[in-house]
Design a protein around this nucleic acid. Structure first.
Lengths: 332, 332
DNA sequence: CTGAAAGCGCTTACAG
DNA sequence: CTGAAAGCGCTTACAG
C-alpha cells in the first residue's frame, strides 16, 4: 500500500534500457524497435505501472485538466441542466485522458476560476452559462485561455455551442398556432440571459410567419419569483387568455402552482406550454407540452470542441444542436 | 498574453539571489533575512508572479487537488444535495489552496475515480454518497487513499460525516405523535442506502419511547417510482391512514401527486410529512412539514476533515451534524 | 533504433 | 542568513 510508485527510471533499470526508451515505448513517439517496445509494454503491464501525469504535464507544459465553470447562484430548475452538462463533459474528458476541475462562480465573483488559471491547473475551460456581460468569459479572453461557452453569446471570438432555442421555440409556437390558439401570454425570466432573447425571437418569428393571424399576445419578461408569476396568472385568467407559455420550467412550475391553487383544470380552462423540458416537471399531471434538449450531448460536444482547440485546431465559432418538440396533455 | 510565465529562476536572477532564497521567501519555510524576504515579496507583487503549483506539487509529491466522487445515477430530488455539497466543498478547498476534481461513478463503475487515483491527480477524496456495499470506498481503502465519506457507513475505519438523521426523524415523529396522530404510514426508498436504515431507526424509536401509544404504523420500503407510490397511496386512503410520512422528497413528490390526482385536500383529508426538506418541495402549497439540513455546511465540514487528514491529523471517525424540524401546514 | 543530458519549475537536505 | 546541488518523474532535441 505504501510502496513507492514505480517510475520510468525503475523500469529502465529493470530492463537495462534508458529512460528515453521507456518513455518512447509508452508515448509511441519517436522510433523504437518493435521488440524493445513490447518488452517495455509487457513489463508495464505486469507491474501495473502507470505514469505520473503531473510530471508528464510539467515536462510538456500541460495539466490534462479541464476547468468547468459552474454558477453558484442557480435556481433549482437549472440544476439538472448543469448536472447533465457535467456528466457529458466529465465522460468525454475522461475518455480523452483529461480530468475535470470545477470552479464555482457567483455573481461575477471569479476567484476560484482565477486561482485555477493563475495556478496553471487547467489547459482550457468550459463555461456552462453565458451572460450578456460575462465576467468569466472576459477574464479568460484576457488571459488567453482556450475556452468554449455552452450557451450563446454575442462575443464573436468565442467558441460557443448551444441548442437551437430559437428554432425550437418557433416550431413549438407554430404548432400551437396551428391548433387554433389565439390568445397567448409569454412569461419569461431575466433578459440578462442570452437564451431569453433567443427564445423570444423564436416566439415572435412564429407569429411573423403567419400574416393572417388575428389573435393577441402579451409578453412578461424579467419575472423571477413565484409571487410575480402568481399575480400575472391571476390577471391572465381574468382576461381569459387561452395559453400561457413559459420560457423555462421554473416559471412553469410557478404558473402551475398558481393555477392549482385556483383549481384551474388543464387544458380545459387554460393551456400551458414550456420552452424547456426538465426533469422538474416530469411527474406533473397532466404532462406539460415542452421542448426537449439532449443536455448531456451538449456537454459532450462542448468538451470535444475544447479538446480540439487544445490539439491546436480551430473549430468553427458556433455550433447549434437540435431539439425535440414534445406535445403533451397540457395543450388541447 | 503569450509571454512566458515568470519563474522562480527569473526572480532570483533579477534580484541577484538564489532560487532557494526566493523559494523560502514565498513558502515562509527556513530562515531568511527580513530584508531579503520583503525584496522578493515586493518583486513578486509588482510583477504578478504566481507559482506553478504543478511543479511545486511534483517536488512535494502533492497535487493540491481533492477528488470529489459524484454519482451518475441520481434522481432529481437528490440533485440539490449533491450540488450544495459541492459548493461547500469547492469553497473550503479553494480557501485552503486546493482545487476540486470530479469523478462520476455510476452503478459501481469507478473508472473515472481509478483514473484520478492511479494518475496521481488527487491527494484525497470525498465521497458524497455511501452505499451498504460501497465499491468506491473499498477501492480507496485498498489503495490507501485518504478519504472522507459524506453519509453514514458501517465501515469502522472510514472517516465519515453525516447529519443526524436518526435523531431528526425521531424528533419529527415525536412531534407528530404529540399532536395526537394515530394511524401512520411510512414510505421509504432503497434499503441499500445507509440513510434509509437510520431514518427507519429514528422513526421506530419515536414509537418505542411512547409506551401508551395505541395507534398503527405501516411501513413500505424499497419504493422507487411514482407508480408504486401511487398504488400505496390509494390503499392508504382507503384505509383512512391519518398521516403519510415520506422518507425523502422524491417519494413525497410522488405521494403529493397521487393525492392531487384524487383531489385530496391537505391536511384536512390526510396529513403528510417528509424526512427531508429539499428545494424541490419549496413551492408546494400547502407547505410540507419536514426536516432541514444545512448541506453546504456538511460539504464544508467534510472538506475540512479531509484537509486535516492531509495535514497528517487523525480526525475522529464520526461526525454528526445538526438538523431542524420544520413544521408546516401539511400537518394539522 | 537507442541513449546521455538538459530541461519543465519547484523544494529541500546539506554546507557554509 | 544564503546558496549550490540534487531531486520530484517525466519529455525531447541532439548525437550516435
Amino acid at each position: 500500500m505504501e510502496e513507492r510508485n514505480l517510475t520510468i527510471g525503475d523500469i529502465a533499470q529493470a530492463l537495462g534500457v534508458s529512460k528515453t526508451t521507456v518513455s518512447r515505448a509508452i508515448s509511441g513517439k519517436g522510433r523504437i524497435g518493435e521488440q524493445t517496445r513490447s518488452r517495455v509494454l509487457d513489463y508495464i503491464e505486469a507491474h501495473h505501472y502507470s505514469p505520473n501525469v503531473v510530471a508528464k504535464g510539467l515536462a510538456q507544459n500541460k495539466t490534462f485538466n479541464l476547468g468547468l465553470v459552474l454558477p453558484g447562484d442557480y435556481n433549482i430548475v437549472e440544476l439538472p441542466f448543469f448536472q447533465k452538462c457535467m456528466m457529458g463533459i466529465s465522460r468525454t474528458a475522461s475518455e480523452a485522458g483529461y480530468d475535470v476541475l470545477i470552479s464555482v462562480v457567483t455573481a461575477g465573483q471569479i476567484a476560484q476560476l482565477e486561482r485555477a488559471v493563475t495556478n496553471r491547473k487547467v489547459d482550457g475551460v468550459i463555461l456552462t452559462r453565458t451572460l450578456t456581460d460575462d465576467v468569466p468569459m472576459r477574464y479568460l479572453e484576457e488571459k488567453g485561455v482556450p475556452f468554449v461557452a455552452i450557451g450563446s453569446t454575442d462575443n464573436e471570438r468565442a467558441v460557443q455551442i448551444d441548442n437551437d432555442h430559437r428554432s425550437a421555440c418557433r416550431e413549438l409556437m407554430g404548432r400551437l398556432l396551428d391548433r387554433g390558439i389565439r390568445k397567448f401570454a409569454l412569461i419569461g425570466g431575466s433578459e440578462g440571459y442570452v437564451v431569453t432573447k433567443n427564445r423570444l425571437l423564436g416566439f415572435q418569428e412564429a407569429f411573423a410567419k403567419r400574416l393572417g393571424w388575428d389573435g393577441s399576445r402579451q409578453i412578461f419578461l424579467n419575472i423571477d419569483n413565484g409571487a410575480e408569476a402568481d399575480k400575472i396568472v391571476e390577471r391572465l385568467l381574468a382576461e381569459q387568455v387561452e395559453c400561457i407559455v413559459c420560457m423555462d420550467d421554473f416559471l412553469c412550475d410557478c404558473v402551475l402552482n398558481a393555477l392549482q391553487i385556483r383549481r384551474i383544470v388543464l387544458p380545459k380552462q387554460v393551456q400551458v406550454a414550456s420552452f424547456y423540458d426538465s426533469s422538474l416537471l416530469a411527474n406533473r399531471i397532466p404532462g406539460i407540452t415542452s421542448i426537449y434538449f439532449d443536455v448531456e450531448e451538449l456537454g459532450r460536444k462542448a468538451c470535444e470542441l475544447l479538446l480540439q482547440m487544445l490539439d491546436g485546431e480551430q473549430p468553427k465559432r458556433r455550433t447549434l444542436l437540435g431539439y425535440e418538440v414534445r406535445m403533451r396533455e397540457s395543450i388541447k
